[in-house]
Simulated assay, not measured.
Amino acid sequence: MRVTSSSLHAAGGTESTRRSRGRPAVPLDRILATALQLVDEEGAEALSMRTLAQRLESGTATLYRHFTNRAVLVGHVVDRVLGEVELDDEALAKMSWDQACQALAQAMFDTLGRHRKVAPLLVEQTPIGPNAMMLRERSLAVLLGGGLSPSLAARAYATLARHVLGFAIQLAGSENAAEQQQVSAYFHKLPPADFPATLAVADSLPVPLEDEFAFGLELIINGLRQLHAR
C-alpha cells in the first residue's frame, strides 16, 4: 500500500472550492453513502468521479467541491467503512493484550465482511483518516500495553493488518454454499490411488474463508505470544 500526496490532506484550495452553475450542493454524507453503495454493488473498480456523479444525478464539479481527486474520495469512503468497526471498550479493557488484539482484528474483518467489495480500495493507499488512525492507535496501544517492544508492536500490527486485508480482498470472490458442496463432492470422487492424502481430509475441504481467517489469526497471535515470552 502507498501513501499518495493527495490522500494526505482533505480537499482544499481553489480546486476544492469550484462551483458548478445551476446545480445544488450535495451533502458530504450523501455523497459518501452513495459512493459506498456503488462499491458494494459494482466493486471498487467502478468507483470514479464520473460514475458517482451520475448516481447522484449531478455533475463531477459537485464532487470537486469536496474532493480534489479520486484518491481523496477513496480515502473518505475507506474511513467511513472503518468507522463501522464495533469496539466494546469495557470488554476490551478486561481482556489480556493477546485476546484484545485478536478481538480487534476480528472486528475489522467482520466489518469488511459486511462490505465485501471495499477491501481493494485499502490497497490503493494507506488509510490515514480519523477512524483509521483511531483503530491503528487502539491496536498499537494494546500491543504496547502488553509489554511488546515498539519494534515488535509495529511489526505485529502490520502483520495483523495485512492478514485482515488479505482475507478481506478474497471475500468478494468467495464461494457460496452450493459451490463449496460441488468442490467437496469433487474431492470425494478423486481416485484413491492418485490422491490418498486429499481423500483423507476430504470431509474438511474446502475450508470456509471465515474459518481460514480465524485459524490464521490464532496462529499469528500464538506466534506473538512466543516472541513476547522470549
Rank of each mutant, 00 (worst) to 15 (best):
L36I: 03
L36D: 03
Q37S: 12
L38H: 06
V39A: 00
D40E: 04
E41S: 12
E41H: 10
E41G: 03
E42G: 07
E42M: 10
G43M: 03
G43F: 02
A44K: 03
E45L: 05
A46M: 00
L47W: 04
S48W: 02
S48P: 01
M49S: 06
M49V: 05
M49K: 08
M49D: 06
R50Y: 12
R50N: 13
L52E: 04
L52D: 08
L52M: 02
A53L: 07
Q54E: 15
R55T: 06
L56R: 13
L56P: 08
E57P: 08
E57A: 11
E57Y: 14
T60E: 14
T60R: 13
T60M: 12
A61M: 09
A61G: 15
L63D: 12
L63N: 15
Y64I: 12
R65M: 06
R65F: 03
F67R: 03
T68K: 13
T68A: 15
N69C: 08
A71P: 09
A71H: 12
L73H: 10
V74E: 11
V74G: 06
H76S: 15
H76Y: 15
D79E: 05
D79Y: 05
D79Q: 04
R80I: 07
V81K: 11
L82G: 06
L82N: 10
G83H: 02
G83R: 04
E84W: 04
E84F: 10
V85T: 02
L87I: 15
L87K: 10
D88L: 01
D89R: 14
E90R: 14
L92M: 15
L92C: 14
A93T: 08
M95L: 13
M95F: 04
M95R: 13
Q99D: 09
Q99C: 01
Q99A: 08
A100I: 04
A100G: 10
C101V: 13
A103N: 02
A103H: 09
L104Y: 08
A105L: 02
Q106L: 11
Q106I: 09
D110Y: 05
T111P: 06
T111K: 04
L112D: 00
G113Q: 08
G113F: 09
K117G: 07
V118E: 00
P120D: 00
P120H: 00
L121N: 04
L121H: 00
L122T: 11
L122G: 12
V123D: 07
Q125I: 07
T126A: 06
T126V: 13
T126C: 00
G129I: 01
G129W: 05
P130A: 09
P130R: 03
N131V: 07
M134D: 03
M134P: 00
M134R: 09
R136D: 12
E137A: 15
R138W: 11
R138L: 14
S139G: 04
S139C: 14
A141I: 04
V142F: 06
L143K: 10
L144S: 13
G146E: 09
G147N: 09
L148V: 10
P150G: 06
P150W: 03
S151G: 10
L152A: 03
A153D: 02
A154M: 12
A154F: 10
R155W: 11
A156E: 05
